[in-house]
Design a protein around this nucleic acid. Structure first.
Length: 277
DNA sequence: CTCCTGACCTGAGTGC
DNA sequence: TGCACTCAGGTCAGGA
């Protein structure tokens, strides 16, 4: 379930229980995710205290009391569950982290990922600036430095289409295939338009739409499709608010046209050919 | 450099 | 039921 709003939702759920919790046990059932989980994780995280988790792009970062960072990426199919009762392992549960909160409550954090495109890393805080995954990330779309000026700099000399531009994590960190379609629909911009042809007003519209869509989704717990849930088992309700994603052959909500489905870089892309130019 | 394709994995859905 | 095929919320590595 992993674009920015879903990752943010996971982060918020973790924040409620993780802060000042102590890691009592770690079990790794499969370490061969996108990359192998480092061998020191089980030893070096045990008995440490966890600090407030935060999100960077689609990554979840959890600082620890020994000045390390526990990093999660959910890939295409990763989920994190927070369990307070006795738990029987499910298929594709790869990592289980047991914690005791400062109120002496016990929880398990379960990382499940059928396709194993996700990743878990554990590294010293001092290495965060040069971390191979984090160092190339672009601007946070909900931050104030996501501006027209920033986009103009990134567009300079680029010829790619605006949908691929939005999904490029080195430009904007956190937008994926669902929200790219949703953002461009709201902004009335055709997904195949090349970015060097966009005017200032288009960039403003992209920024406004991005912030609007992402915030709105976070407010309702992200998008649940294909049975993906929030860590506490709740549904994310943004699926019901989707305007174009998965809506090919439906009537556009802004005109009488039918929503079109095309492939861009072999990813499904939904748009209204009348509203989006 | 930039841009595009293939590759990495498993599971769900569809059509024969 | 079984099999073959397509598609899925990501993104890195390699080639043009």
């Amino acid at each position: 379930m992993p674009e920015l709003p879903e990752v943010e939702t996971v982060c918020l759920a973790l924040s409620k229980i993780l802060i000042n919790s102590r890691v009592t046990n770690i079990e790794i059932f499969r370490k061969d995710l996108r990359w192998n989980i480092k061998d020191n994780l089980e030893i070096d995280l045990k008995q440490k205290f966890l600090k407030k988790p935060y999100r960077r792009g689609k990554y979840i970062l959890i600082p620890t009391s020994n000045e390390h960072i526990l990093l999660f990426h959910l890939g295409m199919s990763g989920t994190i569950k927070i369990i307070s009762k006795k738990y029987y392992l499910s298929k594709h549960d790869h990592v289980k982290i047991d914690i005791e909160t400062k109120e002496n409550k016990f929880f398990s954090i379960i990382y499940n990922d059928p396709r194993r495109f996700g990743y878990i890393d554990f590294f010293s805080v001092s290495k965060i600036k040069n971390h191979f995954l984090l160092k190339k990330l672009g601007v946070e779309p909900l931050d104030s430095d996501f501006t027209i000026n920033y986009l103009q700099k990134k567009i300079y000399n680029k010829s790619k289409c605006v949908k691929n531009f939005l999904m490029d994590q080195s430009i904007i960190a956190g937008i994926g295939n669902i929200y790219a379609s949703e953002i461009l629909y709201r902004a009335n911009i055709h997904p195949l338009r090349t970015v060097d042809k966009l005017k200032k007003e288009h960039l403003k519209s992209i920024i406004d739409s991005t912030k609007f869509i992402l915030k709105k989704s976070i407010n309702v717990g992200g998008t649940s499709i294909r049975n993906h849930l929030q860590p506490d088992g709740k549904l994310g309700y943004f699926s019901q608010k989707l305007q174009v994603y998965g809506k090919n052959k439906h009537i556009c909500n802004k005109c009488t046209n039918v929503i079109t489905l095309i492939n861009i870089s072999s990813r499904s892309t939904f748009f209204c050919s009348n509203c989006q130019r």
